[in-house]
């Protein structure tokens, strides 16, 4: 054991054994983890619905629409959409590089899209057909205090007016009890329900998060002690939804946003 050569052999054998064991486990467990991640995302998207998406199945009830950087429809999933059609979309998207490899519609994620310049990004829209109502869920992403925050915003088209029917926020590393309340506090999320994204004059205002809301129609109260995170949510809402405006306005049928 004292000779140098033996030590190298020993280390080599040890490393070899560990690498083998680990690679075996990785191959077995990684698909399960990837599936968990996907399920968690689907659940998070559906949680934006007013009833929390209970009883809905993402694969059955949700159709994905992909918008290009200008807000035009690039791809629309329909009941009879074939695998080849979406594969064609992925092949085109994956050509952009940056290590982004989409294989399913649910893989499309703003965290990956952020790697591209603004004019190359795409934006997913989730069309939910529930038992009673239809909802459109859009994705927004911005900065909190420590790290990224993102949210799924469920919108309803009420007589040509887009109103928020529910939200679900997520964060990477906000302070528990303060910034993390955007995800943990049901009261905060409930405040968004019924808010308009246009003011009464038809101007786009999104939903603002402010200290003292003056207008109950499109302002919600910020979280005390978490000013930076609240400002981040506000900024994320106004910028994030604006990417979807051309699409939303086309759907609502009024180019001026539905006065």
């Amino acid at each position: 054991m004292q000779k140098g050569l033996n030590i190298y052999v020993y280390v080599l054998i040890m490393t070899g054994i560990t690498a083998l064991v680990l690679s075996f486990l990785y191959n077995v467990l990684d698909p399960i983890q990837a599936k968990n991640k996907e399920e968690a995302k689907k659940k998070s998207i559906l949680a934006a619905l007013p009833d929390g998406g209970t009883g809905l199945d993402f694969d059955k009830n949700v159709k994905v629409v992909v918008l290009d950087a200008k807000g035009k429809v690039k791809f629309e999933q329909k009941a009879d959409t074939k695998q080849e059609e979406s594969d064609k979309l992925f092949a085109e998207l994956n050509k952009r590089g940056q290590g982004v490899k989409y294989a399913k519609l649910v893989d499309i994620d703003l965290s990956l899209e952020e790697k591209f310049p603004l004019d190359q990004r795409i934006y997913p829209v989730y069309m939910v057909e529930g038992k009673s109502a239809k909802s459109t869920i859009v994705v927004v992403r911005g900065n909190g205090l420590w790290d990224k925050i993102w949210g799924y915003i469920s919108l309803d088209n009420k007589e040509g007016k887009w109103t928020v029917s529910g939200v679900n926020f997520e964060h990477k590393a906000e302070t528990p009890g303060l910034g993390a309340e955007i995800k943990d506090s049901k009261d905060f999320k409930d405040e968004f329900k019924g808010k308009q994204i246009y003011d009464n004059g038809g101007k786009y205002v999104s939903v603002a998060v402010v200290k003292a809301p003056k207008n109950k129609n499109w302002e919600v109260k910020s979280i005390s002690g978490a000013t930076v995170t609240s400002v981040g949510v506000s900024e994320m809402m106004i910028r994030g939804i604006s990417y979807y405006l051309p699409y939303l306005e086309k759907v609502s049928g009024k180019a001026d946003g539905g006065k």
């Binding site: 040890m14 064991v21 990785y26 983890q33």
Partner: peptide, 23 residues
């Protein structure tokens, strides 16, 4: 180094197990 190797491998196993069963 050998101790670190053993520990690191076990931690990696725990990490993968958690990712698969307690996401």
């Amino acid at each position: 180094i050998v101790q670190l190797l053993i520990v690191a491998a076990l931690v990696q196993v725990v990490e993968m197990l958690l990712g698969a069963f307690a996401y």
